[in-house]
Structures are given as structure tokens and as C-alpha cells.
């Protein structure tokens, strides 16, 4: 394998693998009968995957990230305004970074 070609092969491999991960979920689910239980599983799955991402982010982070997201969650619960919620979380994180406790 020529050294000039290697990066392009690596990029093509990464693209193929990534596209595979994006297409395989629906392909597998097409072979599973769509019963009530499967629908309930998928419904819980859709929320759970986002919760799992956020939980992992918090576990790797510090009190700063937890405070920021808690503030964002509180604003979302109170006002149901995504932009306001996100901005609050970011402001809390930014202020926390500027003034270390």
C-alpha cells in the first residue's frame, strides 16, 4: 500500500463503518415484528439513549457541568423554552469558569 493512498483508505474505511452504524439499526428492526412490546421498547429506547449520553457526560464532568445542566433543566421545566434553557446552562457554565469557587 502506497503511503500517499493510506490516508484515503483510512478515510474510506471510517466512512464505510460510520454509514454502517447509521443503517444497521433500521435494517435489524425491519426483521423484528412490530408488536406493542417492541413499540414500547423503541419508545423507551429513544428517550433512554439521550438520557444515557447526558448521564455519561455528567459522570465525566465536574460540579460545574452538573450545575449548568441542572439550571437548564429547571428553566425547561418551568418555562418550556429550549433556547432559554440552553442559554441558562451555558451562562452558568461560563460564569463558573470565570469565577472558580
Amino acid at each position: 500500500m502506497s503511503a500517499d493512498l493510506a490516508p484515503w483508505i483510512a478515510i474510506a474505511v471510517a466512512a464505510g463503518v460510520t454509514f454502517g452504524t447509521r443503517t444497521l439499526g433500521p435494517v435489524i428492526m425491519a426483521r423484528v415484528p412490530e408488536t406493542k412490546r417492541v413499540q414500547r421498547f423503541l419508545d423507551s429506547l429513544s428517550t433512554s439513549v439521550i438520557v444515557a449520553i447526558v448521564a455519561g457526560f455528567l459522570a465525566r464532568g465536574t460540579l460545574r457541568e452538573a450545575a449548568a445542566l441542572a439550571a437548564g433543566a429547571l428553566v425547561m421545566m418551568l418555562f418550556q423554552k429550549p433556547m432559554l434553557s440552553m442559554s441558562t446552562a451555558m451562562v452558568v457554565a461560563a460564569v463558573w469558569s470565570s469565577y472558580p469557587p
Binding site: T21, R22, T23, G25, M29, L42, S46
Partner: peptide, 14 residues
Amino acid sequence: VNARHFIFGAALAP
């Protein structure tokens, strides 16, 4: 790193 896409795809499968 991209394995979470399986879950996204499965959740949107219907």
C-alpha cells in the same frame, strides 16, 4: 464511538 447510531436508527426504524 459511532455504535450509538445503531440505537438512533433502531428507535426511528418504524
